[in-house]
Design a protein around this nucleic acid. Structure first.
Length: 807
DNA sequence: CGGAGCGGGATTTTT
DNA sequence: TCCCGCTCCG
């Protein structure tokens, strides 16, 4: 008999023949007969209620460590098992690719290979892309549109600013990019941006620039990240038939981390979840208002606070039974977060032990802070604890360096989560730009990026010439380049370099269907001289970059073709480390959300740093509350031990500042927190820290770090350096493996040449004007190429499309 | 084109 | 204080 988890559209007729109709009475009776399935029995009563409430809107308020993902995945399995919907009728959205991947894996583990049949499980952006591609023409795009990343976006905005004669010193492109992003996050198209805001940029030009930028995107058949959602929203809003189709299709909607949704995401969800005449929609949002920490990038906690108003009659479940932390840790976290107003209110509890009290310790400065943490880690090691189970969670990334330096000294292996992200690394961006040029010859931004990387002598001037002509011809740069190398627009050296490059691209593009895409990528990187460039580079990180490139090529194997890979890469950005030896993790509090460790170190609890001054200045009370939630997230990451530190002196922007302890410290419950006295009494004393340093140095002959150094000799140090270099390594994800193959629209090279050849309107003797060479007389015509005797520049061969009749 | 020298800015970060 | 990006100059 057909496995109910394996159903998908193609199975449909067979399934109908072989078993009860999904969702039919027989199927439901069958499910009821079997009693509650095992996966449901393993849940606690609240979790079970959340899983089994299958009619109407459900809000699951899931506190930290209460089994949120478990509920989400079990609910999906349950929906399918009971025949309420099939895998492809469930929309499940997450924020990160990592979360989506994890969910797929866990559903797979729970219910067999059903995850493969869940085409609508993914991030907001990947699902937005998918829908947008299917109906691109309805919003003025072609299905093969490219997705610009932040860097491309800024470059494009810069061009817009230049075209509109806006001084980009006074009004930086970056700033406009932030504004536009913000507007898109709030679901605002150019016309709907509030006048006051639109006018604030570039003396009232804000709206026009936004509008112009959108038009440029359309011309390039491109979208930015914000568009994936905003255009997706517009699509559904303006096309009721399309909307109805998706409303019918998605019998169940599940949303992870609902507290992090921004306005567009909210509007998009609300549209899809709207009652379509046949009863309440089955939307289930899971989240924790106490862990909303992304307000600064457009997330709106109010979305979750408002849920019951948006979806009247919603069933609300609170998950408060915590399976992660000890009693003291939960008590400390609860007392802290209780200082926030406007929460839905939850109190975590555990059946477990009280455990150790969270510790608060003052230190002299950040150096001592790092030293004390380092010693504590080594002590933990001596007790047999794993480095994998320890993490240092900082407010701001500049705090990391001190710890890294200390750990290198100690030879303590560590990893930094979320350093410069993999896809943002220059070498990866360059490599991807090459591949984009091969797959999408009209991708001007990609071409611009690599045209002179490695150096080919095609600098700013050459690029400008190319740009001028591309604009005149309204053609992509690469197509223009092919024409321009036939003429004398460029200096011979540059012309030759450009021709060589174009020949390369022709060769590579020709192989796109015949050569495996990872081999093609390897070939491109080799033959373009790009690999060579890094091999010749003697800087410290060149080796790492080559490693990254290899990893990139390796990761391509998982995708059916180049198009699918590029699509995936434009959506993915998450960084993890390869396995190897055990390491302590260092990361920001933001990056720590969703993770847990036995021991968590929380340094830098000082006014101005945490809560961060800027959050207070810019967001006032709501900023403070978000900082407090961040503190709550930090404390609740700990299973057994939370150790909080504050320094009396900290160097901020090169200036030493005396700091005062964070207000959050006083918001912790006194009877659940231990205040650590320092044995050496160095705290607060001038020079005492030096004494302490000697003291700890003296005792360090017995530390694991010292022993490591003894047993491994220089290798120990090398490994620490390796850990340093590895900062922010990554792992590849298989998330896009199922995305259908696609590629930009095929371009027929040379079509332009043929067209203009027949249209040559210049006879010998015609007076013409050329952008670069000025006025001249046509000497002879050969197809679309003209030989012109220029008054100033002499005799040159140019393309006819580059000149116009002199007036 | 590439290097030196200068000025401004410096949380958090995913897609 | 340090780092990045831009400008200017060789």
């Amino acid at each position: 008999m057909t496995d109910p988890f394996n159903l998908d559209e193609s199975d449909l007729p067979a399934a109908r023949a072989a078993g009860p109709r999904p969702g039919g009475i027989a199927a439901r009776a069958q499910a009821a007969m079997a009693g509650a399935p095992r996966y449901v029995e393993a849940l606690n009563p609240e979790q079970r209620a959340a899983v089994e409430a299958l009619d109407g809107p459900v809000l699951v308020l899931a506190g930290a460590g209460t089994g949120k993902t478990r509920v989400l995945t079990t609910r999906i399995a349950h929906i399918i098992a009971t025949g309420r919907a099939r895998a492809h009728e469930i929309l499940a959205v997450t924020f990160t690719n990592k979360a989506a991947r994890e969910m797929k894996e866990r559903i797979g583990a729970l219910a067999g290979p059903v995850a493969e049949g869940m085409p609508w499980l993914g991030t907001f952006h990947s699902i937005g892309t998918k829908i947008l591609r299917l109906h691109a023409e309805l919003v003025g795009l072609k299905s093969g549109f490219t997705i610009l990343d932040t860097d491309d976006q800024i470059r494009l905005i810069k061009q817009v600013l230049q075209a509109e004669n806006v001084d980009d010193k006074r009004w930086p492109a970056r700033q406009l990019a932030i504004l536009i992003d913000g507007w898109k996050n709030r679901g605002l198209e150019p016309a709907r941006v509030p006048a006051g805001e639109a006018e604030a940029f570039a003396n009232g030009k804000g709206r026009a620039l936004y509008d112009f930028y959108q038009r440029r995107l359309k011309q390039l058949n491109a979208v930015d990240f914000g568009d994936l959602l905003l255009e997706g929203l517009r699509l559904l809003r303006d096309n009721p038939d399309v909307l109805a189709e998706y409303q019918r299709r998605f019998r169940y909607i599940l949303v992870d981390e609902y507290q992090d949704t921004n306005t567009v995401q909210y509007l998009w969800l609300r549209l899809l979840a709207q009652a379509a005449g046949d009863g309440p929609r089955n939307i289930c949002c899971v989240g924790d208002d106490d862990q909303a920490i992304y307000g600064w990038r457009g997330a709106d906690v109010d979305n979750i606070l408002r849920f019951e108003k948006d979806f009247p009659g919603a069933f609300v479940v609170r998950l408060e039974r915590n399976y992660r932390s000890t009693g003291h840790i939960l008590a400390a976290a609860a007392h802290l977060i209780a200082h926030n107003e406007g929460r839905l209110g939850k109190t975590l509890f555990t059946d477990g032990d009280d455990g150790e009290m969270p510790a608060v310790q003052g230190v002299w400065d950040s150096e001592e802070e790092a030293r004390v943490v380092g010693e504590d880690i080594e002590q933990g090691q001596r007790r047999g604890e794993s480095l994998e189970e320890m993490a240092i969670l900082v407010r701001a990334s500049f705090q990391m360096r001190e710890f890294e330096e200390r750990f290198i000294t100690l030879g303590l292996p560590y990893r930094v989560i979320g350093g410069p992200r993999f896809y943002e690394r220059a070498e990866i961006r360059d490599a991807l730009a090459y591949l984009r040029c091969v797959a999408q010859p009209a991708d001007d931004l990609a071409f611009e990026r690599i045209v002179n990387t490695p150096k080919r002598g095609l600098g700013e001037a050459a690029l400008q010439t190319l740009h001028d002509h591309a604009r005149r011809m309204e053609a992509p740069l690469m197509r223009t380049a092919r024409l321009i190398v036939e003429t004398e627009e460029l200096k011979p050296k540059q012309r030759q370099a450009l021709r060589a490059l174009m020949d390369d691209f022709d060769r590579w593009s020709a192989l796109i269907d015949s050569k495996p895409h990872n081999e093609l990528a390897e070939m491109v990187l080799e033959e373009s001289g790009y690999v060579d460039m890094w091999q010749k580079d003697r800087s410290a990180d060149a080796a790492g970059r080559l490693e990254n490139l290899k990893e990139l090529v390796r990761s391509m194997e998982e995708f059916p073709d180049l198009g699918a890979f590029l699509e995936h890469i434009s959506l993915v950005m998450d960084a993890e480390n390869a396995e190897g030896e055990e390491r302590v993790s260092i990361m920001t509090l933001h990056a720590a959300k969703g993770l847990e460790f036995d021991t968590v170190y929380l340094p830098g609890w000082e006014e101005g740093l945490f809560p961060h001054q800027r959050a207070l200045d810019e967001q006032g009370r709501s900023g403070l509350e978000e900082e407090r939630r961040l503190a709550y997230v930090g404390v609740t990451r700990a299973r057994k031990r939370a150790k909080i530190f504050f320094a009396t002196n900290r160097r901020i922007r090169g200036l030493w500042q005396t700091t005062i302890p964070s207000r959050f410290l006083d918001e912790l419950p006194a009877d659940h927190v231990e205040v650590v006295e320092q044995a050496s009494a160095s705290y607060g004393g001038y020079g005492a820290s030096r004494f302490n340093a000697l003291d700890s140095f003296g005792s360090s002959y017995d530390t694991p770090g010292w022993r490591r150094a003894q047993t491994r000799g220089p290798a120990g140090a090398a490994s620490a350096a390796g850990a340093y270099a590895e900062r922010g390594g990554y792992s590849r994800g298989a998330q896009g493996a199922s995305s259908p193959a696609r590629r930009g629209p095929a371009t027929i090279e040379g079509e332009l040449v043929a067209k203009s050849a027949s249209a040559s309107a210049y006879a010998a003797g015609t007076r013409v004007f050329h952008l670069k060479f000025g006025n001249g007389s046509v000497v002879s015509v050969e197809g679309n190429k003209l030989t012109v005797e220029f008054d100033k520049a002499g005799r040159k061969m140019v393309l006819d499309s580059f000149v116009e009749k002199a007036g």
